[in-house]
């Protein structure tokens, strides 16, 4: 096993895992509450592997399948620019293996960690981190499914907030050390525009719009 793979897997354990686990436990419980089976929940966590889209797909009941798929694609459309941003960092024969694991937790960690690693170590590190995080997602989906009904609504609601706090801290940490502050601030500033969208518009459209407006503004300001 490549040492960078082991290092990535080791570094995935900690706050990353706890935040992700909390969200996937809540998702597992929601899968059961929505009337889907454990296999469906596991396939969603394994294949969609993006919580916003996974939550949208919980509405994939008879007659709403097409809308749920479209909503999930919108909710996770950020995977495309995320994969494009990651590509130069993991280029090589292992890059195709990285594709299914482009998701917010491994991506955010990779964008902060990979530039500091030697190029040959980057893809193995990413795969180690991503596989550990992905496995955690599957195990905790199953756990959440198993204990659904035993969790109080308050605990479930708190679990859903763990990821929000985790990423709030990640973004803040990036700002504090002079990371991509223009893009983060511009995205945050553009986010309230999403609240102006007509009622009934899927929230994912708002995130996508804010990302395009804020990200492009940050990009243009950087180029000046």
């Amino acid at each position: 096993m490549h040492p960078a793979f082991r290092l990535g897997a080791w570094e995935a354990l900690g706050a990353h895992t706890i935040a992700m686990a909390a969200t996937f436990i809540a998702f597992g419980a929601a899968v059961r509450a929505s009337g889907f089976g454990l296999g469906w929940g596991l396939a969603s966590s394994a294949g969609v592997y993006g919580m916003a889209g996974q939550m949208v797909l919980l509405g994939a009941h008879p007659g709403a399948g097409t809308a749920a798929v479209a909503g999930a694609i919108m909710a996770n459309a950020r995977f495309l620019p995320m994969a494009a941003a990651l590509a130069p960092l993991v280029r090589g024969r292992l890059a195709p293996l990285c594709v299914p694991f482009v998701a917010i937790t491994p991506w955010a960690a990779a964008m902060r960690r990979l530039p500091g690693l030697a190029p040959p170590e980057r893809a193995p590190w990413f795969l180690g981190f991503a596989l550990a995080a992905w496995t955690t997602g599957l195990l905790t989906t199953a756990f959440g499914y198993g204990i659904a009904g035993q969790l109080s609504p308050t605990v479930l609601r708190l679990l859903l907030m763990a990821n929000v706090l985790y990423f709030a801290l990640m973004v803040t940490a990036g700002l504090a050390r002079g990371g991509p502050w223009r893009a983060s601030l511009a995205g945050a500033a553009a986010a309230p525009l999403a609240l102006l969208l007509p009622a009934g518009t899927p929230p994912a459209w708002g995130i996508l719009g804010a990302a395009l407006i804020g990200g492009t503004a940050a990009f243009l300001l950087r180029r000046r």
Binding site: A52, R78, P81, M82, A84, A85, A87, P88, I104, W107, A108, M111, V164, F167, A168, M170, V171, G174, P180, R182, A183, S184, L185, A186, G187, A188, A190, A191, P192, A194, L195, P203, G206, I207, L208, A210, A211, L212, I213, G214, G215, T216, A218, F219, R222, R223
Partner: peptide
């Protein structure tokens, strides 16, 4: 490459926007 820089900026902005909307929606 500018396309990569733009994609990175959009992705970072998406993360920050997601956090803000999760707090305000």
């Amino acid at each position: 490459h500018p396309a990569i820089t733009w994609a990175t900026a959009v992705s970072e902005a998406a993360l920050a926007a997601w956090v803000v909307l999760a707090l305000l929606s």
